[in-house]
Design a protein around this nucleic acid. Structure first.
Lengths: 254, 254
DNA sequence: TCAATGCGTATGTCCGGACAATCGAACTAC
DNA sequence: GTAGTTCGATTGTCCGGACATACGCATTGA
């Protein structure tokens, strides 16, 4: 019977460029990640001990450890005391990034289209004010968009943004995603609080998305924060469940 | 006008116990986290430079850095070169753990009840076999449960487990959650691949959950892996959206 | 008055070493 | 043959130092 085999240590071509401004540990972690992605490092294979690896690359052990640790954090590797470091068996894709719908679709080769329905400034409702941390009734941007794939509506996106962050050009909003615009404006996204639920479509929503009244819709509310902790966006989205679902990888924090 | 203020450096009482088997960096990170949670470290306040902090605690700088880094990874702190380390403004709760429904509910003070509907061994369907990485038609455990809060059904949980992992006692399944049983059996959970969607309830599902036929349901499919990469569980769950939604915090990986 | 420059400060990266804790397997004793 | 023990291998933790890099602010110059 095929007993649970432990793949042998794999040695592959690794090298670092000390003249590069890219940190050495980062060069190494990228090469290792590429090797895993590419299949040179097969699931279950041992990585060889850190000390020898460091010696082979002309690096110190802390540097090698930093590279390996970053991949452990990503869920690609597992370390075991007394055993070694091995590649995780499962087909881990990505451990859930804060991704935009636009990027998701583009990565899936869907070439999404966007139609801006509303792009105005409105007084903040109590809910929006609480989410963005501004005074109730103060001005906030309101953007409503319809996201389409293959000419069919897929999601309705309603977003609120605090004023003065950057200018919301309708043309740019139709050409790319909101997150990409924010990043381009020098905003570094940090974290987001999300809530995913479901409910029946109202007549208005049904018509907007091309569904029947009462049809199930997937809903998502999200408040996004930048690296200073400011709320930079609050969104209430509805998705057609026949055309979209949330997929992601979770990691147990150890 | 109140310009964006930078809170002054806060110094607080920190100490480490060198005789404890708990790693020093972990002692420090826990104390810092407690101080943030407790409010002793207010959002925006600076943490003081690492070198002085290390000297004050009698630790080396790498150890202090390791403690701080773990909190940065959790999203509680932000480091800035030339500036310092400061507490994040936003009310970050927790960055999305791989949590069980049972634990979620218990944490919310709901005192969940579970009714085991099915607990048998069945041949694996193609879908289940693919998810668990076993041969199609081979034996797998099948557990169907109804989760109730306040006497009302809230979710229907259908799970498949590879054989021989641990024994599935119906009584224990009703007393606690599946994840807790797995952990108790010495299985260390590592990651999970999840998909969240929505659909209309079939007549059978509707009756089971006390909803109307065609009512929207929140669906979740999840394959969980242990630290060796083995799939240890595959589940297909349906939730009543009026009683449950998925809430979590995301972090941008930098 | 305003922009460019320089400096101090803090984190980012990297080194080389030391000892402890843990796992697995070979070995030994019963 | 089986159970307990020892031992090598490997990661975990920690130290002390060194230099690079980027940010904010004060100074300087136009």
């Amino acid at each position: 019977m095929p007993k649970p085999e432990v793949d042998p240590t794999v040695s592959l071509e690794l090298s670092v460029d000390r003249s590069s401004p890219v940190p050495l540990y980062f060069q190494l972690s990228q090469q290792l990640e590429a090797a895993i992605e590419h299949g040179a490092l097969t699931p279950g294979s041992l990585l060889g001990n850190e000390i020898e690896l460091a010696a082979r690359l002309g690096l110190s052990r802390p540097t090698v450890r930093q590279a390996i640790q970053s991949l452990v954090d990503k869920g690609l590797l597992v370390r075991r005391r007394g055993v070694g470091t091995q590649v995780v068996h499962s087909k881990v894709k990505r451990p859930l990034e804060l991704s935009s719908l636009y990027d998701d679709l583009e990565a899936a080769g869907q070439r999404p289209a966007t139609k801006v329905l509303v792009n105005t400034v409105v007084p903040a409702t109590a809910e929006v004010a609480a989410a963005l941390g501004v005074a109730e009734g103060s001005d906030v941007h309101r953007v409503e968009r319809l996201r389409l794939t293959h000419g069919e509506p897929m999601a309705h996106l309603c977003n609120y943004l605090p004023p003065g962050l950057f200018d919301l050009d309708t043309g740019q909003l139709e050409a790319t995603g909101l997150y990409r615009l924010m990043r381009a404006a020098g905003i570094t996204l940090h974290s987001a609080r999300q809530s995913i639920g479901a409910r029946a479509a109202t007549p208005h929503e049904a018509e907007r998305l091309g569904e029947d009244e009462g049809a199930p819709l997937l809903t998502m509310e999200r408040t996004t924060f930048d690296d200073t902790g400011r709320a930079v966006e609050f969104g209430a989205h509805t998705y057609r469940p026949s055309r979209y679902s949330f997929e992601f990888q979770l990691l147990v924090r150890s």
